[in-house]
Every structure is written in structure tokens, then in C-alpha cells.
């Protein structure tokens, strides 16, 4: 199908190319969402699909909706997903083994049947229908946005009010659900101070503020522990989750040599041989 023949047939080549590219990317995004093992990869594929859908909306003469799609859906909703993934655990991945017998095969067959029925119905129903255009509607009130606004605030005003109530309720609901109830009273500052000094007396733990990550260390990455003024590693400077997962980078004494050399003005090329064997 060459461009000239397409032009000669009178169809809008640009729209065609846009459609086919975006459609393909949409489907790839959907498949990727389906088949990824890690949830973060799934989220990224979904975002791909949504952006392509936004482009398709614009191609369908719905520019306002396309923008809203990017801002609300991709921007807000997918980011919410990513936040929760961080809480739940980025490493959690599904095993490939299906626990329910026959579920996978039955699902594939049924979904194929479903898709086949739908596509068959669509193709049969909409054949021989004239090409549409939204020019008239879009320019009736001086633009797509104005047209939509007219409809929302006159025909669907009640739906609009109800939806706003829904939003409020949703926000309240989310707050309620995510709220962690304290079972014991929150310790006051005085109580915390007393406890801190009690710990110092018992274990020698320094009662002062902990240094932030990377203090006196070569790097201020969150997984590099800070050094105490005397050069010892302060393990508490790395956040708890990272500690538990063992993502703490070791700080070795050789770094101290680097410190000395840099302070003397030499450039240092370091070859680290920490456990991960990675280049810094």
C-alpha cells in the first residue's frame, strides 16, 4: 500500500497512519500488561496504552478528552498505582504456575469466543455506514470543550452533581480505609526522650539525632550508610526496609584512602570490589 495509492483513493493518509501506529502500540501495551511478571512493568505498559489512547481520542475529534486522559488517567491514576506498588512491594512477582485447574485454558477459550462475538457483531453491524464527522458538533458552541461543557451543565447536570458527591465520598472512604488506628497512645516527646536515654544507659546507643544517610560517607545515596564522626558505620542511617532487604552498600575502609587523596588534590580512579561488583 503505497502512499500515492492511498492519496489517490482520497482517504486521509495521516489519520490512517496515526490510527494504525497508535492501535498497534495500544495492543502491544495491553499484551505487555498481561504478560509482565513484575507489576511495575505492567504499570508502564498500561501507561503506554493510555497515552496512545489519548492520541486516538484526539484523532477522533475529542481533544479535550484526550488531554483529560493524559492528565487524569496516565498522570494521576497510574501514579497512584505505582505508589501502592511501592508499598506492597516492587519485587512481588506472580509465579507462572496456575493454581486453579483449567482456569488458563478456559479463560483463553472464552475470551477468544467473547472477542470473536464482539468483533463479528461490530463488523456486521457497522458495514456500509457513511463516514462520520464531528465538525458541526464541535463548532456549534465554539469548540469541543464548550460543547461538552454545554452538555454537562444542562442535560447531565444531575449526573454532574452526583459525581461530585461521589468524589467526595471516595476521598473520605480512602482516608478511612488507609487510616491506621493507634492501639496505644502516642508517646509524648518527654516519654521518647526518657526512653532514649534509658536505651543509652542500657546499650550505649547514641542519644543524639541520627546523621542523615551518606554523612561523612562518599555518597549520599539512600542505601549508603552514614559514618559517625569517629569513622564507624551508623547502620541506622539506612531506612528500615532497605536494611531488611539487605540493600545496604558496604562502606569499606579503602574509601577513606580516597578521601585523603582527593583532599590532596589527586583525581582518583577507583575500582570497587564490593559484593555487588558494580561500577560506581
Amino acid at each position: 500500500m503505497s502512499a500515492t495509492s492511498l492519496l489517490a483513493s482520497g482517504t486521509d493518509v495521516g489519520a490512517e497512519i496515526v490510527f494504525w501506529v497508535c492501535a498497534t502500540l495500544c495492543v502491544i501495551g495491553a499484551l505487555g500488561m498481561l504478560l509482565s511478571r513484575k507489576p511495575v512493568h505492567s504499570a508502564l505498559f498500561v501507561a503506554l496504552t493510555m497515552i496512545n489512547l489519548a492520541i486516538l481520542y484526539v484523532a477522533l475529534q475529542a481533544p479535550f478528552l484526550g488531554m483529560v486522559q493524559i492528565i487524569v488517567y496516565t498522570g494521576a491514576v497510574m501514579m497512584l498505582f505505582v505508589f501502592v506498588m511501592m508499598i506492597v512491594g516492587v519485587d512481588a512477582s506472580d509465579s507462572l504456575i496456575e493454581t486453579i485447574r483449567g482456569q488458563r485454558w478456559a479463560a483463553i477459550i472464552l475470551v477468544l469466543a467473547f472477542a470473536g462475538l464482539l468483533i463479528g457483531a461490530i463488523v456486521n453491524g457497522l458495514s456500509g455506514v457513511p463516514e462520520p464527522s464531528l465538525e458541526a458538533a464541535n463548532s456549534q458552541y465554539g469548540g469541543n470543550l464548550q460543547g461538552i461543557a454545554k452538555i454537562i451543565f444542562t442535560d447531565y447536570i444531575v449526573a454532574f452533581e452526583v459525581t461530585s458527591a461521589l468524589l467526595i465520598i471516595a476521598a473520605l472512604g480512602a482516608m478511612l480505609l488507609a487510616h491506621r488506628e493507634r492501639h496505644t497512645p502516642k508517646p509524648t516527646q518527654e516519654q521518647r526522650s526518657i526512653a532514649r536515654f534509658a536505651r543509652y544507659a542500657a546499650t550505649g546507643e547514641l542519644p543524639g539525632n541520627l546523621p542523615p544517610a551518606g554523612t561523612y560517607a562518599r555518597h549520599n545515596a539512600i542505601d549508603t550508610p552514614a559514618l559517625a564522626p569517629d569513622g564507624s558505620v551508623v547502620p541506622e542511617s539506612v531506612p528500615g526496609p532497605l536494611q531488611e532487604r539487605g540493600n545496604v552498600r558496604p562502606v569499606d575502609v579503602a574509601a577513606e584512602v580516597e578521601v585523603d587523596e582527593i583532599s590532596e588534590g589527586h583525581t582518583v580512579v577507583t575500582v570497587d570490589d564490593d559484593e555487588a561488583g558494580e561500577q560506581r
Binding site: L60, Q61, A62, F64, L65, V68, Q69, V72, Y73, A76, V77, L80, F81, V84, L126, V129, P132, S133, L134, A136, A137, N138, N144, G147, I148, I151, I152, D155, Y156, A159, T163, L166, L167, I169, A170, A171, G173, A174, M175, L177, A178
Partner: peptide, 28 residues
């Protein structure tokens, strides 16, 4: 686009709003 009016877009708009609210509660 097929019908030549903007009702479909309006409904899609509402769907988006409700979907957002639903995502909030569902994730919570």
C-alpha cells in the same frame, strides 16, 4: 463521532471521573 454529537464524549468524561474515584478506593 459516528453519531455526530458530543454525548458520547460527555459520558466518557464521566466514566473517567468515576474510574478515578474507584481507583482511589480500590487501592486503599
Amino acid at each position: 463521532q459516528q453519531n455526530g454529537n458530543l454525548y458520547g464524549q460527555t459520558i466518557a468524561f464521566f466514566v473517567m471521573v468515576v474510574a478515578a474515584a474507584e481507583v482511589v478506593v480500590g487501592l486503599a
